[in-house]
Computed example of a mutant assay.
Amino acid sequence: MNQENLSSKPHFQILDGLRGVAAVLVVFFHLAEPLASSHLDNVVNHGYLAVDFFFLLSGFVIGYAYDDRWKTLTFKSFLRRRLIRLQPLVILGMTLGGITFYFTDSTIWPMIHTVPLWKLIIVMLIGYTILPIPLSMDIRGWQEMHPLNSVGWSLFFEYIANMMYALGIRKLSNKSLAIFVSLSALLLIHFAVTNPNGDVTGGWTLNYEHMRVGITRTLFPFFAGLLLSRVTQPTKIKNAFLWCSLLVVAVLLMPRIGGASNLWLNGLFEAFCIIVIFPLIVYIGASGVLHPNEDKICKFLGDISYPLYMTHYVLVYFYVAWISNHKSITLVEAWPTALLTFGGAIVLAIISLKLYDEPVRKWLHGKIKA
């Protein structure tokens, strides 16, 4: 099926808008995180669940866009399309992270100015491929697989899920896929309630523990989204964007459940959100009827969602360095800088979209027949 036929499918604008809402909350989460005294009292307590929501949205959209195209579509052409869609901003995020690396020095990163330029360049080039770096190449000290752009870890698992889909899972019947998704849900629940942190965080370090977390966080939402795209029969739901947005906000801002004494309760809550609430949100969003002017809001939020996610952490590095150099600062004192950082992230996302991502993808589509 050619590009024209693909574009003739109805577009889920509300889901685009919800992706943008979640991306905005991710930025707020990262701005609030360094001000929290522990992982128990972040203002945006469950902001990291936006990644799990992204995986679910991605699985739904991939299934909707490609499930009926495999009579003519090849793995190579599928992967080419995904590379054109995802990789330009991966490269931009790593490049910006590399350019600004030496300017984010603070008390929490004393090693930065000891990193030779050649090592920085190697880490940046590996980052372009989205492949993880080993711990021996960590140049920031946070034990991340992508120390120039922290959020790159989720793209690594996104690609794994995409390849699993294209290489075999797409061939599963709905019944077999449902069994696979159910087993993935059990795996997620077990991890969530037994994790010593009392949540589903993790996946950003190249070691056994974090690889297990990353795979566990990816399998259920991505392939549940795929299953949902196959079995959903959307109805017409009014005010869907408003209600879904409020649900996303409510989940991500919900205070920790159970406190420090019953961490497993918080894990159970997060598993419930991923397994029940997020699919419900996607179903309602896919069934929604847009009100006048909501289409413009959803388009704007959808357009900037991926650029915002892939570039905001470059500015967050500066913000975190500033916070670390003012250790006694409070939320009330920090909010003007946080707001400025947030505004800068929105502006950077728009510039990245209009001056880089859209032109590059258009050029690549012209050069490479996907």
Rank of each mutant, 00 (worst) to 15 (best):
N5H: 10
F12N: 04
Q13D: 10
D16G: 03
G20A: 01
V24L: 15
L25K: 02
L25M: 14
F29I: 03
A32K: 02
A36Y: 08
A36D: 09
S38R: 05
N45C: 12
G47Y: 02
Y48G: 09
Y48F: 13
Y48P: 15
F53V: 14
F53R: 01
F55Y: 13
L56D: 04
S58D: 00
S58E: 00
T72Y: 06
T74S: 15
S77T: 15
L79N: 11
L83W: 12
P88Q: 12
L89T: 12
L92E: 01
T95G: 13
L96E: 12
I99R: 05
I99D: 02
F101A: 09
Y102K: 13
Y102P: 15
T104A: 14
S106G: 13
I112Y: 04
P116S: 00
K119M: 15
V123A: 02
L125C: 11
T129Y: 06
P132R: 13
I133M: 04
D138W: 03
E144L: 15
M145D: 06
S150W: 07
G152P: 08
E158S: 10
E158R: 05
E158T: 12
E158I: 12
I160S: 08
N162M: 14
M163K: 00
Y165D: 12
Y165F: 09
A166H: 02
L167S: 14
L172M: 14
K175F: 10
K175R: 11
S176I: 08
S182Q: 07
A185K: 08
A185L: 06
L186S: 10
I189K: 00
H190R: 06
F191L: 13
A192S: 13
A192N: 07
T194N: 14
N195E: 13
G198Q: 02
N207V: 07
Y208R: 10
M211T: 14
R212S: 10
R212W: 11
R212K: 14
V213H: 08
L219G: 04
G225E: 05
S229L: 05
Q233E: 08
T235M: 03
K238I: 13
F241P: 02
L242R: 07
C244M: 08
V248T: 12
V248L: 14
V249S: 04
L252T: 00
M254T: 15
G259P: 04
A260R: 06
W264M: 11
L265I: 14
L265H: 06
N266G: 07
L268D: 03
F269N: 00
E270D: 07
F272G: 11
C273K: 01
I275Q: 06
V276I: 15
I277M: 12
I281Y: 02
Y283L: 09
I284H: 01
I284G: 04
G288H: 05
G288M: 04
H291S: 13
P292N: 01
N293Y: 10
K296N: 02
K296H: 06
K296I: 02
C298F: 05
F300N: 01
F300D: 00
G302F: 07
D303I: 09
S305R: 10
P307W: 08
Y313I: 07
V314T: 15
Y317W: 08
Y317G: 01
F318D: 03
Y319T: 00
Y319K: 00
I323V: 15
K327S: 15
K327A: 15
A334E: 10
A338K: 03
L339P: 15
L339I: 11
F342M: 04
I346L: 15
S352W: 11
K354T: 15
V360W: 01
W363V: 14
L364S: 09
L364K: 05
K369M: 02
